[in-house]
């Protein structure tokens, strides 16, 4: 039983070390959900939930592999988005999009765009299919 404190000290140290790894990784990689306004103030990578502003269209440039569109955030603010990559699946059908990226010179440079589709689940039948 005399060896016990040793064991607890080592176990405690290992747990502390792991906790430190976890906490430091967490604080470095956490990404806030923000509005355009807040994202501009923060100046770091955030996620913005909003909708595609259809009147502004979208554009995919194959040479630079850039997909561009305009996002309207939940408070109605507009911001142009540039995503390196192709147009996400179901982009037009999405009721909302979640853009991960940072604002640089008034443009949201996106690393990821998620599309949320309503129609798949519990959709309103009235707009999903023509009635028979």
């Amino acid at each position: 039983m005399k060896q016990l404190p040793w064991k607890y000290i080592i176990a405690g140290a290992v747990i502390l070390a792991l906790a430190w790894v976890g906490i430091s990784a967490l604080s470095d990689s956490s990404i806030e959900y923000a509005t355009v306004d807040r994202a501009e103030k923060l100046g770091k990578t955030v996620q913005i939930i909003g909708t595609w502003e259809k009147s502004k269209g979208w554009n995919y440039d194959a040479q630079s592999n850039t997909f561009a569109f305009t996002l309207r955030d939940e408070q109605g603010a507009l911001i142009p988005v540039e995503l390196i990559g192709a147009k996400p699946n179901n982009f037009e059908a999405a009721v909302s999009v979640v853009v991960k990226g940072r604002i640089d010179d008034g443009v949201l440079k996106a690393s990821n765009v998620l599309t949320k589709c309503p129609s798949k689940y519990e959709g309103q039948p009235t707009d999903a299919m023509p009635a028979s």
């Binding site: 990784a25 967490l26 470095d28 990689s29 956490s30 806030e32 959900y33 990578t45 996620q47």
Partner: peptide, 14 residues
């Protein structure tokens, strides 16, 4: 608190 997600780097690092 303000909603925050975790990037893939978190999982890779730990």
């Amino acid at each position: 608190l303000p909603k925050v997600a975790v990037a893939i780097e978190f999982y890779n690092r730990v």
